[in-house]
């Protein structure tokens, strides 16, 4: 739902207001954002808009990093850690959605997408590194440390970049849903063994 106060007098103003609101609450809708053509604005206005977008994304990323910092608060086991990591994905998917917004000029989209991608990749890398260091100094048993590290790698945030997201950042489509009838399968689809002579 788009509230009226997000709509400005000009497309530019609508974008700036929406971005401001979005940086506080990345689940608000972006559907109303008007198209921006390369030739609509002076390079100056375009630049300012780009910065507004980047600022909004940075704010979201900041908050996301704070959430990430709290992920270890009284979690019970590696599985719960993994689950919390998965729950951090929507915000990432949402940033990617803004970066890919169809109303943006292609040049913006390219630049923003690669910026989101590299931010998330860096976040993941640094998270893994600092986590590994923390673990090394902990007195947890080796097997638990390995399990935790595996959990962090297995639930990498980078995966969220490829998810098509809904408004809430939830994945739009889970897995390719086969419709109707499949190709016929054999009753014994398992690989048959043969000796090698």
């Amino acid at each position: 739902m788009t509230s009226n106060n997000l709509l400005g007098a000009s497309p530019y103003e609508t974008w700036v207001r929406t971005l401001k609101a979005w940086s506080q609450d990345p689940t608000i809708s972006l559907e109303h954002l008007p198209a921006l053509q390369d030739d609509t604005y002076s390079p100056d206005t375009a630049n300012r808009l780009l910065h507004a977008i980047i600022d909004a994304m940075s704010a979201v990323n900041e908050r996301w990093l704070a959430d990430l910092g709290r992920i270890f608060d009284n979690y019970r086991d590696p599985y719960e850690l993994g689950r919390r990591l998965v729950q951090l994905r929507p915000a990432i998917a949402r940033s990617m959605q803004l970066a890919s917004h169809p109303s943006l000029p292609q040049t913006f989209r390219d630049a923003l997408q690669s910026s989101v991608r590299s931010t998330i990749e860096r976040n993941q890398r640094e998270f893994e590194e600092s986590f590994e260091t923390t673990l090394r100094h902990s007195d947890l048993p080796k097997s638990t440390r390995e399990q935790l590290l595996r959990t962090v790698r297995e639930n990498s945030f980078v995966r969220a970049l490829n998810h098509e997201a809904k408004q809430t950042g939830e994945r739009l489509v889970a897995v390719a849903l086969p419709e109707g009838v499949h190709d016929p399968v054999e009753r014994q689809p398992r690989h048959q063994r043969r000796i090698i002579l």
Binding site: Y79, R83, V86, R89, R159, E170, A174, V175, L177
Partner: peptide, 13 residues
């Protein structure tokens, strides 16, 4: 391969 990821997937599906 993450189970938490797969269950999230299942949830949406």
């Amino acid at each position: 391969t993450s189970l938490a990821g797969a269950l999230e997937n299942a949830r949406v599906t």
